[in-house]
Amino acid sequence: MATGGRRGAAAAPLLVAVAALLLGAAGHLYPGEVCPGMDIRNNLTRLHELENCSVIEGHLQILLMFKTRPEDFRDLSFPKLIMITDYLLLFRVYGLESLKDLFPNLTVIRGSRLFFNYALVIFEMVHLKELGLYNLMNITRGSVRIEKNNELCYLATIDWSRILDSVEDNYIVLNKDDNEECGDICPGTAKGKTNCPATVINGQFVERCWTHSHCQKVCPTICKSHGCTAEGLCCHSECLGNCSQPDDPTKCVACRNFYLDGRCVETCPPPYYHFQDWRCVNFSFCQDLHHKCKNSRRQGCHQYVIHNNKCIPECPSGYTMNSSNLLCTPCLGPCPKVCHLLEGEKTIDSVTSAQELRGCTVINGSLIINIRGGNNLAAELEANLGLIEEISGYLKIRRSYALVSLSFFRKLRLIRGETLEIGNYSFYALDNQNLRQLWDWSKHNLTITQGKLFFHYNPKLCLSEIHKMEEVSGTKGRQERNDIALKTNGDQASCENELLKFSYIRTSFDKI
């Protein structure tokens, strides 16, 4: 039985969820670079991206490699990797027998973001014989899940209580170790020597080791999670996991709180800001991140802002960003909400898709409305799209047979046209069989910064309504002859009103 693990408890099935942008060198404390989270699957090609990484700022997932063999891993080693800020997950990587050479110096898994409450997941690794993470000293947050690894031993010899604050939620089941077939031998045991430290858990006094050649490092209890030197002297209180010299914040392997210019500090002093819960960055760093993602459509890219001495992905609820200094300031009234469309555009074809934009005031991208039916549609669209004030790209209304009016965009005031449909149009209306009105132009103002209007096959939309939009939106004169079809717009509506004058002759039985 794995020490510190839980057996036999019912657990939810383990679901495996399925960018080499360097964020800056980590400095003297770390020998390499800070790398983003990685999802490495199918083959070993991307694994080489770990070569210079000291910190993975995010998670590391290595999974679904069915053609790899043990010899493929023999020359692979990433000794610079010290810390993973989120979680480490391995799933069905064939041929991998140990992690001792792959990650010989991995010391800390912070667990800032977890995989279903777990910071370390080893699942269905069919050839893994031992973990071998002999320098792993601290899992700051989260638990361990090690399950269905039929060859995995050296679990009962690990004292997880020396690595985690609590072992109650560890789930370590259905491994070879369960069948008591392992016969784990710690260093020196074969020669009758006791080389590794022994600890007591559940009444068992057991030597602690990761492999037959690597003991588990056990520091004096007084050192807590700070770690200790090879001689057993406690590291500085700002260290986490390990250090090369005692009581020196510049000799830590990793930091308990924050890293700044080669030393570990309790908090980031001005003019620095907390970033990702582990390091200090200056304003320029946060500003660069903001600008890199301002026009990016890459998933996970955030326009970072500053709030409460932190550089964070977005302002919290009730705050909006001051564009001059990136500071989050309290909103006066309802907060603006910028919604970034991942692929640059979004099609609204149902109430469900409209709900995804609920509360958005600025759309960074283009909207395509293609709704053919739905219950209580006008009210639903207004509830979900009615706060949109600005669209950076274009607005396209296409084959939306259920629409009679666009009044559900009740606050839309600006279409920038930074991206144009077919390279020309910022407003595009095609084949809307029941569209009769755009907006009530006596109450609604709309500016279209650039781009043209396109109207074709809107049989109940009168040309007068379209011409009014040209005047109000500032697009009059931009359109070419064929942009607004004269014969297919309003051709099934009563669009022309003329005053009919009647004269009559009164007659009676005795007068003409």
Rank of each mutant, 00 (worst) to 15 (best):
H28K: 09
P31L: 13
P31R: 06
G32M: 10
E33L: 11
E33T: 06
V34I: 05
C35D: 00
P36A: 15
P36S: 14
G37S: 08
G37P: 08
M38P: 00
M38W: 03
D39W: 12
D39E: 08
N42T: 08
N42C: 09
L44V: 09
L47P: 04
E49S: 12
E49M: 11
E49A: 06
L50G: 02
L50H: 02
C53N: 00
C53I: 01
S54D: 04
I56A: 01
I56L: 13
H59N: 09
H59P: 07
I62P: 00
L63V: 08
L63K: 06
L64A: 05
M65W: 03
K67A: 07
T68Q: 15
T68S: 06
R69A: 11
R69I: 08
R69K: 05
R69V: 15
P70I: 06
P70T: 10
P70Y: 03
P70W: 07
E71G: 13
D72W: 10
D72F: 06
D75L: 13
S77M: 05
S77V: 09
F78W: 11
F78M: 08
F78P: 02
P79D: 09
P79V: 05
P79G: 11
K80Q: 12
K80H: 11
L81H: 00
L81V: 05
I82T: 14
I82F: 11
M83H: 08
T85L: 10
T85F: 03
D86C: 15
Y87A: 02
L88W: 00
L88P: 00
L90F: 15
F91P: 00
R92A: 02
V93R: 00
Y94L: 15
G95M: 04
L96F: 02
L96W: 02
E97I: 14
S98V: 02
L99E: 00
K100E: 10
K100V: 13
D101P: 14
D101T: 08
L102R: 01
L102H: 01
F103Q: 00
N105T: 07
N105D: 14
N105W: 04
L106W: 01
T107D: 02
T107K: 06
T107P: 00
T107E: 04
V108P: 00
I109T: 00
G111Q: 00
R113P: 05
L114N: 04
F115Q: 05
F116G: 02
F116M: 03
N117C: 05
N117H: 08
Y118H: 07
Y118N: 05
L120W: 01
V121R: 02
I122Y: 00
I122C: 08
F123P: 01
E124L: 01
E124C: 03
H127S: 14
H127D: 07
K129S: 09
E130V: 07
E130C: 06
L131P: 01
L131R: 00
Y134R: 05
N135K: 11
N135C: 05
L136V: 07
M137F: 11
N138Y: 11
I139Y: 00
T140G: 07
T140Q: 06
R141S: 03
G142L: 01
G142I: 01
S143L: 11
S143Q: 05
S143A: 09
V144M: 13
R145T: 02
R145D: 02
I146Y: 02
N149R: 00
N149Q: 02
N149G: 08
N149I: 00
N150F: 04
N150H: 06
E151Y: 06
C153Q: 01
C153K: 01
Y154K: 05
Y154A: 03
Y154I: 02
L155W: 04
A156V: 11
A156T: 05
T157D: 01
T157F: 01
T157N: 04
T157M: 04
R162I: 08
I163L: 09
I163Q: 01
L164V: 14
L164M: 06
L164D: 15
D165V: 05
D165H: 05
S166T: 14
D169W: 11
D169S: 12
D169L: 12
N170H: 06
Y171S: 09
I172G: 01
V173T: 01
L174F: 09
K176L: 07
K176E: 03
D177W: 06
D177L: 08
N179L: 09
N179V: 13
E180Q: 13
E180W: 11
C182L: 01
G183M: 10
D184G: 13
D184P: 02
D184T: 04
I185S: 03
C186Y: 01
P187A: 12
P187I: 10
P187R: 09
G188Y: 08
T189R: 07
A190K: 08
K191R: 10
G192R: 05
N195W: 13
N195H: 06
N195K: 09
P197V: 14
T199G: 05
T199H: 10
T199S: 06
T199N: 07
V200I: 09
V200A: 05
I201P: 02
G203D: 15
Q204I: 07
Q204W: 07
Q204V: 09
F205V: 04
V206A: 13
E207A: 10
C209I: 00
C209A: 02
T211D: 07
H212P: 13
H212G: 09
C215M: 02
K217F: 07
K217H: 06
K217P: 03
V218T: 11
P220L: 13
I222E: 05
K224L: 13
K224H: 03
S225A: 08
S225Y: 11
S225I: 12
H226I: 08
H226Y: 10
C228S: 02
T229F: 05
L233Q: 09
L233N: 13
L233E: 15
C234Y: 02
H236T: 04
S237K: 02
C239S: 00
C239P: 00
C239A: 00
G241Y: 04
G241S: 14
N242D: 10
C243Q: 01
S244R: 14
Q245T: 06
P246V: 07
P246S: 12
P246Y: 05
D247N: 05
P249W: 14
T250P: 02
T250L: 10
K251C: 06
K251V: 09
C252S: 01
C255R: 00
C255F: 00
R256A: 07
R256Y: 12
N257F: 07
F258P: 01
Y259R: 08
G262S: 08
R263D: 14
C264P: 01
C264S: 01
P270E: 10
P270T: 08
P271E: 03
Y272R: 03
Y273L: 07
Y273F: 11
Y273M: 13
Y273E: 14
H274A: 14
Q276I: 07
Q276K: 10
Q276W: 05
D277H: 14
W278N: 03
R279V: 12
C280P: 03
C280M: 00
C280K: 01
N282L: 06
N282W: 15
F283V: 09
F283R: 11
F285P: 00
C286A: 06
D288V: 14
L289M: 05
H291P: 02
K292C: 06
K294P: 14
S296V: 06
S296D: 15
R297D: 14
Q299W: 10
Q299M: 14
G300N: 07
G300W: 01
I306W: 15
H307M: 11
N308A: 04
N308V: 11
I312P: 05
I312L: 08
E314C: 09
S317D: 05
N322E: 00
S323A: 12
S323C: 11
S323R: 06
S324T: 08
N325S: 04
N325K: 07
N325E: 15
L326E: 09
L327N: 14
T329P: 03
T329E: 01
L332Y: 03
P334D: 11
C335I: 03
P336I: 15
P336L: 10
